[in-house]
């Protein structure tokens, strides 16, 4: 256990790689564009005169949360997907690997960086959302809202791990397209996959069932309906189950990414 060895040293190296990735996002100004776009859409809608009736909030919550989800998907995937390809393209991966840094640490560091960078954006979006919701209706941070934010962070961890893994085997554009497709399709149809499989032909049914059992169910982390319409919070055991699910799938993607990166010819 020298200066570069041990758990502490490994964590320091992972954090150092992650921090660089995080700073890169703030330099790229993706977040500011997303915030400006969100404000441009939400503020005029919030100021519309709806037959002189005051205090209507659910439509604003729905639009704001939809934008938060869309932006988090775009920022999460694009940030994670460019981490390793950008290093390869700029050839900065060689001096990085020449240092006493294991490939596993590079993958983990890139994941931490991508997750923290997009997570910071997400936190900022939710702060704006809570502010808007609070000012419009006086309802600030509810239990359901807290659960929604927590599950959204888990979603982001899973999404960035998947995109990072994809970035090692796929081209950049293919990875962006495929990751977005998987995330959006699972959010839209994940819950209905068994029903769709029941109604499909044999081949399609087998395919849909395989997707149902194997693909990451991103819809488990979407609590928007509950927040928008003021439904009761999710039971604690369901939140725990979703957390465990996210942890298992994130770990699987990271292990896969590490193995792929270890075998990659540089």
């Amino acid at each position: 256990m020298g200066g570069n060895g041990g758990m502490n040293g490994e964590m320091r190296r992972i954090w150092a790689i992650g921090r660089v990735s995080m700073l890169e996002l703030f330099r790229r100004k993706d977040m500011y564009v997303a915030v400006i776009l969100g404000v441009v859409i939400v503020v005029p809608l919030a100021s519309v005169n709806l037959f002189g009736i005051e205090g209507i909030v659910r439509y604003l919550r729905e639009i704001s949360l939809l934008l938060i989800w869309l932006f988090s998907i775009v920022i999460g995937i694009s940030t994670a997907a460019r981490q390793i390809p950008a290093e390869l393209e700029r050839r900065t991966i060689y001096p990085l690997l020449a240092k006493p840094v294991a490939r596993r640490e590079v993958v983990l560091g890139k994941f931490v960086g991508a997750f923290l960078a997009s997570g910071t954006c997400l936190l900022f979006f939710y702060l704006l959302f809570v502010l808007l919701s609070g000012m419009k209706q006086g309802a600030w941070m509810t239990v359901c809202m807290f659960q929604a934010v927590l599950l959204h962070f888990l979603f982001l961890a899973l999404l960035t791990a998947m995109a990072l893994c994809g970035s090692i085997v796929l081209t950049h554009s293919a990875n962006l397209a495929l990751s977005s497709l998987v995330a959006v399709c699972m959010l839209l149809f994940g819950q209905r996959l068994p029903d769709l499989a029941d109604r499909a032909t044999l081949a399609a049914s087998i395919l849909l069932r395989a997707i149902h059992w194997l693909a990451p169910h991103f819809e488990f982390f979407d609590l928007r309906l509950r927040v928008i319409h003021g439904w009761d919070p999710v039971p604690a055991q369901a939140v725990a189950a979703a957390t465990a699910y996210a942890a298992v799938y994130t770990a699987l993607f990271l292990v896969l990414a590490f193995n792929l990166f270890r075998r990659k010819q540089l």
């Binding site: 009736i53 488990f220 189950a241």
Partner: peptide, 22 residues
């Protein structure tokens, strides 16, 4: 089971002017 807990289901109506205006 998880989907059943995460996504609300059932039959609810908005009641009262505070909610109906939505």
């Amino acid at each position: 089971w998880l989907n059943g807990h995460i996504h609300p289901s059932g039959n609810a109506h908005l009641k009262g002017e505070r909610y109906e205006k939505e």
